[in-house]
């Protein structure tokens, strides 16, 4: 694994290896001195688009691995002075950086950077295309829920039953890199993906992964679903004003108490964040044990640790034997 850019570029086995390593990290004493060997390795976090959680999550992941982290955002860099991204990454490489984590508002930058430098490049979100480490964290979270017996009533008892899962992604699908990466991941492991939202936020063409159903009728689809992943409406990406108003949206697509009544008792809720409370998902659901949101945040760290380990080829004694 040289780079980590799009989920669809990896086999199920490769993705499973990353998930299993993340799970090992979760159970490991991270204060162990074995990580100190990594101090001479430098990871550059280049964030050319606003981000709080992903950036902090990557920083914590790298620091837990004992890596040296340098932060970098466009406002404080030479990119603002007209330097190209190519020159920026070539400079970082020359300065001895060992891996690049890149968040960009362009779909192409991460692919381009991976061709210009021969060090690992990790995609921390590229425009509307991909957010593979978010998907990996969510994958680990779902695996965890299965192993905890959360879907026992549906006869989903182990990861072998993953393909029985029916997962609904609700909201602003068309602008969502998370939806695309999750959809590619669910396809790899056979789970059924439903895309749900107002028509204007649903794809009008083939989105590139297998979709079981696509509908603007959440209520009808809901009783089937084992997992519901709500998405934020990305107002900043809209090229035309939204036709649907917030009240109507909440009524039809919000994860509300009344909606919960028609869901199965085992149905769990996720959100990649940042979530708008009481529009996309009600506060009391976010804070209930039906919500996996904080687990997603936590697992994103271990998944990013695993991705950094695999791409950078970090050798950490013992961890693989756990």
């Amino acid at each position: 694994m040289v780079n980590f850019i799009d989920i669809e570029k990896f086999t199920a086995d490769e993705l499973l290896e990353v998930a299993e390593l993340a799970e090992n990290y979760k159970n490991f004493d991270l204060n162990s001195p074995i990580f100190l060997n990594n101090r001479d390795k430098i990871v550059a976090l280049i964030f050319l688009e606003n981000s709080t959680r992903t950036r902090i999550s990557f920083e914590i992941a790298a620091k837990k691995l004992g890596l040296t982290v340098i932060g970098f955002d466009s406002e404080k860099s030479s990119l603002e002075k007209g330097e190209t991204i190519k020159d920026t990454v070539l400079t970082l490489k020359a300065l001895g950086v060992n891996a690049i984590v890149l968040r960009a508002s362009s779909a192409s930058s991460v692919n381009q950077v991976s061709k210009w430098v021969d060090i690992p490049v990790i995609n921390a979100g590229n425009a509307m295309r991909s957010h593979p480490t978010q998907a990996m964290g969510d994958f680990v979270t779902i695996r965890e829920a299965i192993s905890q017996g959360r879907f026992k009533s549906e006869n989903i008892n182990s990861f072998d039953d993953f393909s029985k899962l029916k997962i609904g992604i609700v909201g602003d699908i068309i602008h969502s890199r998370v939806a695309r990466s999750l959809g590619e991941l669910f396809e790899r492991f056979g789970a059924k993906t439903y895309l749900i939202g107002p028509e204007e936020l649903l794809p009008k063409f083939d989105i590139g992964f297998r979709v079981e159903g696509i509908t603007d009728d959440f209520k009808t689809c809901l009783p089937e679903l084992d997992i519901i992943i709500a998405l934020r409406i990305q107002l900043e990406r809209l090229t035309e004003p939204l036709l649907v108003n917030p009240i109507f949206y909440r009524e039809r697509y919000g994860i509300t108490g009344s909606l919960l009544e028609s869901a199965k008792p085992s149905t769990l809720f996720m959100h990649p964040g940042p979530q708008v409370r009481d529009l996309e998902i009600d506060s009391d659901i976010i804070d209930s044990d039906r919500s996996l949101i904080l687990k997603q945040v936590e697992n994103s760290i271990y998944s990013r640790m695993a991705v950094l380990t695999k791409t950078m080829g970090l050798e950490i004694d013992g961890i693989n034997n756990l």
């Binding site: 779909a107 425009a127 509307m128 295309r129 068309i174 602008h175 890199r177 695309r180 794809p203 009008k204 063409f205 083939d206 989105i207 590139g208 090229t239």
Partner: peptide, 18 residues
């Protein structure tokens, strides 16, 4: 034409490009 970058269709939808 809008502010498109490539053909409007399956590939642009997959890539999330205008």
């Amino acid at each position: 034409f809008d502010s498109g970058i490539m053909n409007l269709g399956d590939v642009s939808t997959k890539l999330g490009l205008a």
